[in-house]
């Protein structure tokens, strides 16, 4: 069962890609990308987990603790979450602008740029 978090995170990534390919609503596409991001973040967090480890804060560590989880992947994840927030916000903003111009959110109809 030790590899379960990795399997789950990759399932999330796969579901996100599936949503991107199958779904047509621009908001749902943005959600699909967020799901992939969450999958990757979960992957990063579970990389640094040590069974029975405590939060890696030395000043608050209880006496006689055995192990701490790795702090670096958590720092990476925080950064990735912030970046994901920015990309999601930008994509949703563009979805709003596109809706104002076209009156639709259907990616199948928003195809002025083709050929």
């Amino acid at each position: 069962m030790g590899n379960m978090p990795f399997v789950v995170s990759m399932i999330l990534v796969g579901l996100g890609f599936l949503a991107l390919i199958v779904r047509r609503n621009l908001i749902k596409l943005a959600i699909g990308i967020s799901v992939i991001e969450m999958g990757v973040n979960l992957f990063l967090v579970s990389l640094g987990y040590v069974r029975g480890g405590i939060a890696p804060i030395y000043t608050y560590a209880p006496p006689g603790f055995k192990e701490m989880v790795f702090p670096t992947p958590q720092a990476l994840t925080l950064t990735a979450i912030v970046i994901g927030l920015a990309t999601t916000a930008l994509m949703l903003a563009f979805a709003v602008v596109i809706y104002r111009h076209r009156g639709t959110l259907d990616a199948g109809k928003i195809r002025e740029l083709k050929g």
């Binding site: 890609f17 991107l20 390919i21 779904r23 990616a107 199948g108 002025e112 083709k114 050929g115």
Partner: peptide, 17 residues
């Protein structure tokens, strides 16, 4: 080739995969 460049985002992602 024109049909290949369909302009549909799902196709873009599919080809990326």
């Amino acid at each position: 080739l024109g049909a290949f460049h369909s302009g549909f985002l799902g196709d873009y992602v599919g080809w990326l995969l």
